[in-house]
Design a protein around this nucleic acid. Structure first.
Lengths: 335, 335
DNA sequence: CAAAGACTTGACAGCGCTTTCAAAGTTTGT
DNA sequence: ACAAACTTTGAAAGCGCTGTCAAGTCTTTG
């Protein structure tokens, strides 16, 4: 293991003081052309790369943005990661992802790790961290939350209205003539899931349809739960003509349950999801869904972090859900 | 922004020297119970968290494992991320992911970033980095490659035979009676893709079937390319009875193309993928595929990193692809 | 009971880099 | 030609922590 070269090595090689090398590296002050040249030569000769740890210590900035996520492999957050990555690109800052698995305790641990590593700012993706905790945290560190709005931190939160999104999807179904619409919810502990559920109920009310608790089944945002819930639903009710799934993954599970029973989509039953995962455009049939602009949200989060870092007050962009009509929904046919 | 407390603050509060605090933190030496107690009190009172940057500088270990990946949102690598995360869990080490997007230049940049941050080891997931480069890198840093084997670094590479995997899938199709089997390849620049293609040809040869170049279309591991390639294929040949897609995403695209043309899967045509993404178990119909144990590979990579870090010579586990038969393939029916 | 260990503890010198501060060298103005 | 005003440069302190070294205490042992 060859030792990494240090700034001092470079200084010696170039016959200048360490300060000068540092100045050239950071452009902190002007330096005579000849010294600059010899320093640059020494740098490439030695293959010198500044030690970011040392820089972090000296400058008090680690150049890393901590990202508390829920699951590193989540298809939905994946898009947000891309946005964050892009937003941070060539800024010198780099993201560090730690997963919290939707457990407040693990998320707190993730925050601890990130603060130990002296992340310059935090981006919190969803999760179950208490508002108070985040609020306190925000006093000592720039924090941006994505997918949730923290009371008192509104201008550092980027979020879309899940309720509005759900209503968009429901109105689509309703306008298509569906009346017996089932809902497979997300985990009851997720505020998004609750909001989507609320949107479901609101839309029903808007169209003057009585809410029937038997039509809502609990899921957990995973495919398997969507499958199970749908099986249960189908064995209990035969009058349902459409399902509004809490997210695309749930919809995929529901789709499989229908496939198993020979129920055609959308001929026999309409299906709509939420999120618009990339894969949803390639299901059979392609899934109608409510799109959440995950990548844009990530990008916006990165930009807000920069604003915060520079002491500005960021202005969260107005992002919103949109309906993506594909082929899993169709007008109700009076059989 | 309240200043973070330092080890010195703790020392003063507890009326001991910084060394003592350090010793307690690291368990480096025994300390009298009363001092330990007062230090611990001071720590929790002040909410002290060690500064990992400072520790890194002093110890010369950053406790971070650099992971050069290709796309942070890739469904296949996602599973590997989970494995890495798990493998590293509670070891004090944390992964830092940087994406290279399959471009050698970007990957080299990723490596630079990671070495600047003094990552203690690197895990390279796939990619197009030259073997020489990796070999040179490996002289100064523990490196584990996943999804590719580097000449001279075999014991630090974890990989499965893509060729064998492809043959597994092909034999399945062949045993089902299929003879006109098309292949939609991955990007010709990926060695995995090439190996899978080779497996395709080998299997054909094994069954004494002439290789027909017209049956192989170029894809790029993305859904869209699978869709396009399949459309092209179907408009050109009507005798194909099965498609072996280079990966599940390609298979999804192919599936959609068939759906568009009213081709039933598997009744009219069999379809098989590669990777076994989580979502593949929920497609319509569920996809038969060749499973790559992504998570296990990630886990193994983490363990190999530990071995390397401790100066041991790691023994790469023997992992291999396996056939997952679901419902997208069926015996050829003589129409 | 003195000498030798065995523990516990604090001072201090780094780790590699940044950032005053002040000295030395240059340029400008009159 | 000389003071005033810059510009370029190096010395040195310090970021927060670790680890060596030596001093100080306390036990143990012949």
């Amino acid at each position: 293991m060859s030792q990494a070269r240090t700034l001092n090595d470079v200084a010696k090689h170039a016959n200048v003081s360490p300060s000068t090398v540092s100045r050239i590296l950071n452009g902190t002050a002007s330096v005579s052309p000849d010294k600059r040249k010899s320093v640059e030569e020494a740098i490439s000769l030695l293959g010198y790369r500044p030690n970011l740890m040392a820089q972090a210590l000296a400058k008090g900035r680690s150049m890393t943005i901590g990202v508390v996520t829920q699951a590193i492999s989540s298809p939905f957050y994946g898009e947000t990661f891309v946005g964050i990555e892009q937003g941070l690109a060539s800024s010198g800052y780099h993201p560090m992802f730690i997963s919290g698995h939707w457990r407040a305790e693990e998320e707190r641990e993730a925050v601890d790790i990130l603060t130990s590593r002296r992340a310059d700012a935090l981006i919190i993706l969803g999760g179950n961290l208490e508002d108070d905790y985040l609020l306190k945290m925000a006093e000592s560190l720039p924090i941006v939350t994505v997918g949730r709005t923290v009371q008192g931190l509104e201008h550092q939160s980027i979020n879309i209205s899940q309720e509005d999104g759900a209503m968009l999807g429901m109105r689509h179904l309703l306008d298509l003539g569906h009346r017996r619409i089932a809902h497979i919810s997300g985990p009851p502990s997720h505020r998004d899931a609750i909001e989507r559920f609320t949107g479901y109920k609101n839309a029903l009310a808007e169209y003057g349809i009585a809410y029937d608790p038997e039509l809502v089944l609990e899921g957990n945002y995973q495919e398997r739960a969507g499958l199970l819930a749908t099986e249960q639903l189908l064995s209990r009710r035969t009058d349902v003509t459409a399902i509004f799934a809490a997210n695309d993954q749930t919809a995929m599970g529901a789709r499989l349950a229908m496939f198993r029973r020979g129920i055609r989509v959308p001929d026999d039953m309409s299906l709509i999801g939420f999120d618009d995962l990339f894969a949803s455009g390639y299901t059979t049939p392609p899934l109608t869904t409510v799109r959440q602009p995950g990548e844009d949200m990530g990008l916006a989060a990165a930009n807000m972090v920069f604003a915060l870092l520079e002491g500005h007050r960021p202005k969260p962009p107005r992002l919103s859900a949109s309906l993506i009509v594909r082929e899993s929904t169709s007008r109700l046919r009076f059989a």
